[in-house]
Design a protein around this nucleic acid. Structure first.
Lengths: 108, 108
DNA sequence: TTTAAATATACCATTTTTAGAATATTCGTC
DNA sequence: GACGAATATTCTAAAAATGGTATATTTAAA
């Protein structure tokens, strides 16, 4: 996985308004207008933030007539999970080593 | 967990140089000078970036004489994992391993 | 085919973030 | 206690991201 892909996700979430949009979408998919109204944002800004979230793979768009319904999308979160697990692994291994050490102690 | 805490971690990682510093530290703890040299950054910038990573709980400092050795720190990654798991739950099947790890953390 | 609603884009101002250079601080050694 | 090495901080300029307003685009309905 390219660093650029990771960065796109981190940069997308690292903005308070986009962070709030993701949180709101946890309660279900919503149109641009609904998101803007719910959070008190202007429509153009909301569209721009959604575009960034979309490019990061964190949301997907469903077109219905002249409405655009935004849903949370798995891909972006998976990217984050992949990145994270390569670091988390480090402490998991530590626990494993401790575990192995304790077992050896037991045996002696 | 407060949104501010999540934001500090996302904003910390959402910078290419800080991203590279974290990656470098995976190969082991290093002094400011070693990090700056390895990545071709100037020392003052390196210190500033490390400060932001530290405030996010992603690194810790070990003081040895007039040197400062920076290590990866679990806390910041756990914060990210907590945030992620609240979203990942909706897609359950994937990232089982990370999810299982985080649940163990919760219990301890 | 004109109109209104919903959304996206473009453009410019503004705020925030980062970089660079100089300086301060801390620690060990002479 | 003076000096050099390692790191942190401060200040200003530059760069990047965000906000606001106007406008374009698309769609349904009159």
């Amino acid at each position: 996985m390219s660093d650029a892909k990771y960065m796109r996700v981190f940069q997308a979430v690292a903005d308070e308004k986009r962070f709030e949009i993701l949180k709101l979408l946890q309660s279900g998919a919503k149109t641009v207008g609904e998101i803007a109204d719910s959070l008190g944002y202007l429509q153009p800004q909301t569209s721009k933030h959604l575009k960034i979230l979309h490019q990061a793979g964190l949301v997907r768009v469903e077109a219905v007539a002249n409405k655009r319904i935004y849903h949370l999308e798995k891909d972006g979160f998976t990217v984050l999970g992949d990145w994270l697990s390569s670091y988390i692994q480090r402490w998991e291994d530590q626990l494993d080593r401790l575990d192995a050490y304790l077992k050896e102690e037991e045996e002696s």
